[in-house]
């Protein structure tokens, strides 16, 4: 999964939540600027401007990448604004008659509002937008944490399943050759036969534990196959009871 699709996912969450919050930014367009260059400096800004991936939040709730590698935020920026931008603080300015406000969303990007019919945003609006962007960034951080944990857990499960499978292969050899000895060598001394039978029982036991572990892996992976069929209940109960009855002390 690449970064862009992660970002798009969190952006659709953001759009959803924008609908539920009364931000009263009527007539505004919202852009989310993702992945700015790391540690921007004034020099970098003067030389190249900043490079962004820009996303446009559609009012219908869809998110589309708008453009890549946008240069400077906009041409007319007063110096104080550039400094605030570099420091990762909220700032606002005017460009070509449009009021613009931009707030950082954690380390993940910036939220930018553009309003064509206004000169500026109020202090309260900037605070609200900032709190909102912080909440979204926090949510995104948690999402990334959970995704990492899930990936680690899946890797461990896959490792577990293949290890258990590897154990089963030599177990089958032990079981098979023990049976062969028990069947072929009729002249075994009683003591030897008894010992071999213990080996046989122990490998049966170990094999059943290994098979249970494999079942567990299958259940975790959602790959447990169920094969339905008709059968007599009484016979099955009888079989179960006779299987466990040696355990009754």
């Amino acid at each position: 999964m690449d970064e862009a699709s992660d970002f798009e996912r969190i952006l659709s969450l953001l759009t959803e939540s924008l609908k539920t919050v009364d931000l009263t930014f009527d007539g505004c367009e919202i852009d989310v600027l993702g992945e700015p260059v790391e540690n921007p400096t004034m020099e970098m800004f003067e030389q190249t401007g900043f490079k962004y991936k820009t996303y446009r939040l559609d009012p219908t709730g869809t998110v589309a990448p708008r453009s890549y590698n946008v240069a400077a935020p906009f041409p007319i920026v007063i110096e104080q604004t550039v400094e605030r931008f570099i420091a990762g603080e909220p700032w606002q300015g005017t460009s070509e008659g449009q009021a613009i406000v931009e707030v950082p969303a954690g380390a993940y990007g910036r939220l930018r509002l553009t309003a064509s019919e206004r000169d500026s945003f109020t202090e309260d609006e900037v605070v609200t937008l900032r709190e909102f962007a912080d909440a979204v960034a926090l949510g995104y951080a948690r999402y990334l944490d959970i995704r990492d944990i899930q990936q680690q857990s899946e890797l461990k499960s896959a490792f577990f399943a293949s290890t258990v499978h590897e154990i089963r292969t030599p177990m089958n050899a032990i079981k098979g050759f023990t049976n062969l000895l028990l069947r072929r060598l009729e002249n075994l001394a009683d003591r030897q036969k008894e010992n071999l039978e213990k080996v046989d029982q122990a490998s049966d036991h170990l094999l059943s534990i290994v098979n249970d572990l494999l079942d567990l892996s299958k259940i975790e992976a959602g790959q447990m196959d169920i094969t339905p069929g008709k059968f007599g209940v009484a016979e099955m109960v009888d079989l179960c009871v006779s299987t466990v009855s040696p355990l009754v002390g």
């Binding site: 094969t227 069929g229 007599g232 099955m236 179960c240």
Partner: peptide, 18 residues
């Protein structure tokens, strides 16, 4: 008669009983 996975049901009952 029951109509389900016999092996799995058996496994469940044996586990519960043991």
């Amino acid at each position: 008669e029951a109509n389900t996975d016999k092996v799995r049901l058996q496994q469940m009952i044996i586990n519960l009983l043991s």
